[in-house]
Design a protein around this nucleic acid. Structure first.
Lengths: 119, 119
DNA sequence: CAGAATCCTATGTGATACTG
DNA sequence: CAGTATCACATAGGATTCTG
């Protein structure tokens, strides 16, 4: 029996595929890197990136469902205080994301004119 | 002027996004890990995975355009010998892919019944 | 063998407006 | 503030067939 890896509600036989099914979502790396700094409330997080509220919420839900992000809600003065932060699992993924950043920086840098610059 | 990162023909301001735009393609991790072992001819590579020829060719082209994969073609006996292998840039991405594999293995492993097993 | 050419469908994402 | 609800769209991926 082959090992299976569940991510985003789907089952994969390859752990890399499973991991990319999470990181591959358009705003997930940005969300993760932002939350790695500090917890953010929904609106504050939203204002740091160009994603729509709908998509941001969707991808946050995926991260929550997979145990990478934790959502803490509190009632106060007829208002909901919704705060998002990384879990231990989420934090464990950061070195991977930073490795991707490092590779991208070293191998994909282009200048404003679009021509690849020397590394 | 902000640095820009070109991947898959698009420009990104975030290197992680640029990198995921490559790795995020469904079969790219599989292709990379397979070619990391040894060069493969098109048909041989195709037979190792469930991707259709069209999609396999598409994603190989993306990898070639971004300098991760090299394609060597030779004529022999009215037949084309098309061989694909990793470039130095492509090889440089392998540690990242292995890091993703490691994380996926440690944090996403499930058994056949679908319940998450202890790590 | 190594692909190119079509057609088709799911879904990821964006824009906008509305709600408690 | 923290979402939901729609609509609308581009594109990624799959299935199939055809070619040199």
């Amino acid at each position: 029996m082959a090992a299976t890896y569940m991510a985003d509600g789907d089952l994969f036989t390859c752990p890399v595929e499973a991991t990319t099914s999470l990181i591959g979502k358009k705003w997930v790396p940005t969300i993760m890197m932002t939350l790695a700094d500090q917890p953010y409330r929904f609106e504050a997080l939203h204002s740091t990136m160009a994603a729509s509220k709908k998509v941001l919420k969707q991808q946050l839900d995926v991260l929550i469902a997979n145990g990478l992000v934790h959502n803490d809600k509190q009632q106060r003065d007829n208002q909901v205080i919704s705060s998002y932060s990384l879990t231990a699992q989420g934090t464990a993924l950061m070195p991977v994301i930073f490795a991707m950043k490092e590779w991208g920086t070293q191998h994909l840098v282009c200048d404003a004119s679009g021509s690849r610059s020397e590394v």
